[in-house]
Structure formats: structure tokens, C-alpha cells
Design a protein around this nucleic acid. Structure first.
Length: 504
RNA sequence: GCCCUCAUCGUCUAGUCUGGCCUAGGACACGGGCCUUUCAAGCCCGCGACAGGGGUUCGAAUCCCCUUGAGGGCACCA
């Protein structure tokens, strides 16, 4: 095992909700840190003031906590390498940006956004590759002094080598070489005094003692820029691992925050959407761990602890993956079936409350709830599926057509007779339990020569008003003697009316 | 346009580094069956892939090259 003290970070920018791909990145970093007994750091990259969303930090922390991805250093927990908000580290960035200028690795650029836009337009029109034309790199001292005298605002750009090549080593992909000619003089420090990702990330990773950088593979192209910065500073670069992208379910394009729909299939992009859609955090964790990484190529379901024990960067895939959404549903169902009743009930409460129009307190106090939850456990994939299945227990009046009470291959009159016999038996029951109900009703089937399905279908409609419902005896038991019998009598009345209306 | 990356069932993946154990394994989905009072759950069976072409080798999914395809990047965003 790795003896070095592993320090990794997840470094989101607070611009909105936590993207499921971001969550996967966080998850892999977390697994890696936990596997090595290292440190998982949360760093907030809030250097883009235009896209900054104040509430985003709360969303981020909520989502990470929901997934139980606890961080050892960062917001709310502190640490010895803070501050963990980049907006509070501006002095550091200025210091080192200036150092780069003084040591001829960077220069001040006075080009205005308008000039740059014009330049880009020109490049586009002439079919040239986009990129800064290095205008200010070649300013004479006099020109430079003049710009300064004008008091023009400036950015600091990296002075990239014009020839040669830069090779980075990726733990997942091996060596990746870039021709330096293709690297433009990117911005390090913006005119508003905030650093760009490239500068801040290198400085912070260095001073925070980061040992491994695990980030999405969309960053591969910037890796040589970062490598060159490390070289200029004379710092050792952390080990790199670029994680495979998560694609849209269609497999076309990376999973974007905007595309919410692919055909009829819904696409859940943010972690909170998974929660709201009735997914369990453990299931989402398990699901995410299976994208780009696999436990052993055989086992689909595993605990966090098992994943931690087995996690290794070397087993991370290099191939981009589409989200297997239907597998997410299956997995969630598996987790639901594994839960104990009290946990499931607690998890279900907010969803039931919302859908059934009752308060959580009311529902929690309903003595029938445990039985109902039990009925639901084997037939839901998402927590949101439960309400419809047990809705029959929360309506005052059942709305269904009387003809549904007529069993297959039976006349209305015969159906009525069967129903009445069932009522007689149930009323005679000394104890209204699932077992007692089943025994006497199966007795009736045997004695009457009816098919089980014939009798039970009549009763299901009578008791739940639904074609599809949970198992009959359990449903009756959950409903209770009084409600069950009342509904049975109502059904008998409807059937009687039907028989009277359609004599045959 | 330029640079970079990737390429196994519809999808997620194992196998690729260290060629032979691969007539390519698992899972989801799909189809069929069993069970069964409906719906589920569970169990069983089935369908289904090494992108194509060249090499290297006694032997290639595994190594090399080319083609094709897909994706990412090319901002005073991260």
C-alpha cells in the first residue's frame, strides 16, 4: 500500500447545484483518500464573480453530506491549509503571479475584451485556430510604460514556450504529449484581480500539499499548461488522473446541465434531483461507483466500506460512459428491499406526505402505516412510487365501476353471491388477521369450486378500488376490520344494483 | 480548423499493462418460462459485443500501424 500521505481534493465552483458528474469526481477522490487513510479536502473555487451563486455553497455541502462524502478539511471544518475559499487567497495568487512576471514566465497584457473579441472573429473568419495572438508579449519597454501611464487595466498571461513539447503523465492514460506551439498564452490573473483556474489550482494544490489530482478528463487539454507552471515555479506536480466523462444517456455529448430530456427518458443531472426523485443516497453512491470503476467485474452491489477497501486508481476506466439510468432504478429497488421497516418508513414519510396530502406527523402516527409500508417494499423502485400503491388506504370513497366486481366467467349474480359469502365468513372471524382472512377465504374457494382468482379479484376491487393493488389479505389487514367490511358491503350494494339493472 | 483522448453485448462493465485459462464473464434492459389472487419480488432460460483493415506471433479482444467512428479542449468559465 501507498506509504505516502495521500491528500486529494474536490474543488467545485459554486455556480449552482452539484452535478452528478461532479459527485462522481468527489466520490472517487473520497474513495481514494479513504483507501489510503489520507485526507479528503473540499476547496471552493469561487474565482468567477460573474457566475457566482450565493446559495450554491449550501447546495454543494448538502449534496455531499447526503452522499456521506465527508471532507477532512474545507468549509465548516477548517484545517491547517486554509483558507479553503479561493476568494480568500487572493494575496497568494498576486504574489506568485507577480513572481512569474518578474522571472519572465508571464507578462502583463493590456488588450481589452473588445480587442480580443475582434481578434477571435478575425481568426475564425480566416480559419485560423483560436487563441491569443501574443500581441502584448512583444511590447517594447516604452510601449509598456505608455500603457501603464495610461492606467490601463491588464491581465497577466503566461509566457508559453514557442517550441518543444510538454509531456504529462496520467495515471490512467499514461504519457500525453503536447506540442508547445499549440499552447497559447493563457490568462493567469484576470483584470478584476481574481486568478483563473489555471493559476489558482496550481498554487493551491501546491500549498495544500495535494498529492494526486483526480478530475474530469475535460481538463486533459489544460494539463500541459499546469505542468509548465509547476516547472516555472520549481514545484513538484501532483500525480494526475483524468476521470472518464459521463455522457448523456444517448451516449452523445457530455451530460450537460441544460439538456434535461432525451426522447421520453428523463435525465437527472443534479444530485438533488436524484434525492427528489426518490433515490436513496446509498444507492446513488453505489451507482456512481460503478461508472468508470467496477468492484470486481462481477459484484454490482457493495457497501462503502467494501468500495474503500478495493478502490484503486489503476482500475479506473478510460472510456467515457453514458448514464445507465435503468440500472439506477434497479439498484435503488434492491436497496429498498434490503432496508428494515423503520428505516424504509422514515425514508418514505416525506414522499408519502407530499403525495397523499397528509402531514408527516399524521402519517407517522397512523398505526396502519407499518403494514402498508411492508406491502409496498417489494414493489417500488423509487420512494416516489409508494404513494400510488397504498393510496387506497387514504381515500374516503372508492371510485370504480360496478362491472369490475364481476369476476371472469361469472355472472353478476354469482359474483354477488360469492361476495356475500365472503362477507359472512369475514364477519364471523374471531380475529381479523391476515392469516385468518387467508384461511377462511381459501376455504371458501375450495368449498365453492370458484377459482382463487375469481374470488380474490372481486374482493380486491371491493377493498381497494384498484385493478392493481398489494396482496389482498395484507391490504385487508392493514385497512382494518371496520373499513374492510364497510367497503365490502358497499361493493355488495353496487353489485346488487347491477344485477337488478341487468337481469339475465 | 487545430490539439488531445477513447473504442468489448442497446447500456454499465470484466478481460488488455504481464498475448494462450476467452467457443469473451457479470449486471441492467429486453424476450420466454416457473411461482402466483392482480402488480411486484424471486428463480430459471434466452437474445446479445471484441468498430474495420493490415501487420507481429505457433497463437491477438489483448502488442504495432492505418482507417473509421465517438468524445473532450481551443474564454479576463471552471
Amino acid at each position: 500500500m501507498n506509504q505516502e500521505n495521500v491528500r486529494v481534493r474536490f474543488a467545485p465552483s459554486p455556480t449552482g447545484f452539484l452535478h452528478i458528474g461532479g459527485a462522481r469526481t468527489a466520490l472517487f477522490n473520497w474513495l481514494f483518500a479513504r483507501h489510503h487513510g489520507g485526507t479528503f479536502i473540499l476547496r471552493i473555487e469561487d474565482t468567477d464573480r460573474k457566475r457566482y451563486v450565493p446559495e450554491a455553497l449550501d447546495y454543494l455541502l448538502d449534496s455531499l453530506r447526503w452522499l456521506s462524502l465527508d471532507w477532512d478539511e474545507g468549509p465548516e471544518v477548517g484545517g491547517d491549509y486554509g483558507p479553503y475559499f479561493q476568494s480568500e487567497r487572493l494575496e497568494l495568487y498576486h504574489k506568485w503571479a507577480n513572481w512569474l512576471v518578474e522571472n519572465n514566465y508571464a507578462y502583463r497584457c493590456y488588450c481589452t475584451p473588445a480587442e480580443l473579441a475582434a481578434m477571435r472573429e478575425e481568426q475564425r473568419r480566416r480559419g485560423l485556430p483560436p487563441g491569443y495572438n501574443r500581441h502584448c508579449r512583444y511590447l517594447t519597454p516604452a510601449e509598456r510604460a505608455a500603457k501603464e501611464a495610461e492606467g490601463r487595466s491588464y491581465v497577466i498571461r503566461a509566457k508559453m514556450p514557442l517550441e518543444g513539447s510538454t509531456t504529462v503523465y496520467d495515471l490512467i492514460r499514461g504519457e500525453i504529449t503536447f506540442d508547445n506551439k499549440t499552447l497559447d498564452d493563457f490568462v493567469l490573473l484576470k483584470s478584476d484581480g481574481y486568478p483563473t483556474y489555471h493559476l489558482a489550482n496550481v498554487i493551491d494544490d501546491h500549498f495544500m500539499g495535494i498529492t494526486h489530482i483526480m478530475r474530469a478528463s475535460e481538463w486533459i487539454s489544460s494539463a500541459p499548461r499546469h505542468a509548465l507552471l509547476y516547472r516555472a515555479f520549481g514545484w513538484e506536480m501532483p500525480k494526475l488522473a483524468h476521470l472518464p466523462l459521463i455522457l448523456n444517456p444517448s451516449g452523445k455529448g457530455k451530460l450537460s446541465k441544460r439538456k434535461k430530456q432525451a426522447g421520453n427518458e428523463e435525465i437527472l443531472v443534479n444530485v438533488q434531483e436524484y434525492r427528489d426523485a426518490g433515490f436513496l443516497p446509498d444507492a446513488v453512491f453505489n451507482f456512481l461507483a460503478n461508472i468508470g470503476w467496477s468492484y470486481d467485474g462481477q459484484t454490482e452491489i457493495f457497501t462503502r466500506e467494501q468500495a474503500i477497501a478495493r478502490f484503486d486508481i489503476k482500475d479506473i476506466n478510460s472510456t467515457a460512459a453514458a448514464l445507465p439510468f435503468s440500472k439506477m432504478e434497479w439498484l435503488n429497488g434492491m436497496y429498498i428491499r434490503e432496508m428494515d421497516l423503520p428505516s424504509l418508513t422514515a425514508a418514505l414519510l416525506p414522499f408519502l406526505a407530499k403525495s397523499l396530502g397528509r402531514s408527516e406527523e399524521t402519517l407517522a402516527g397512523d398505526e396502519r402505516l407499518p403494514q402498508l409500508v411492508k406491502l409496498v417494499q417489494e414493489r417500488i423502485k423509487r420512494l416516489t412510487d409508494a404513494a400510488d400503491i397504498i393510496r387506497f388506504a387514504y381515500v374516503d370513497h372508492l371510485a370504480y365501476e360496478a362491472k369490475n366486481l364481476v369476476a371472469k366467467k361469472l355472472t353478476p349474480a354469482a359474483s354477488l353471491a360469492a361476495l356475500q359469502e365472503a362477507i359472512r365468513r369475514i364477519e364471523a372471524l374471531p380475529a381479523f388477521t391476515e392469516e385468518a382472512l387467508e384461511m377462511t377465504l381459501r376455504d371458501q374457494v375450495a368449498a365453492s369450486g370458484l377459482k382463487a382468482g375469481q374470488l380474490f379479484n372481486i374482493l380486491r376491487w371491493a377493498v381497494t378500488g384498484q385493478k392493481v393493488a398489494p396482496p389482498l389479505f395484507g391490504s385487508m389487514a392493514a385497512l382494518g376490520r371496520e373499513t374492510t367490511l364497510r367497503r365490502l358491503h358497499e361493493a355488495a350494494q353496487r353489485l346488487a344494483d347491477l344485477v337488478a339493472a341487468v337481469p339475465s
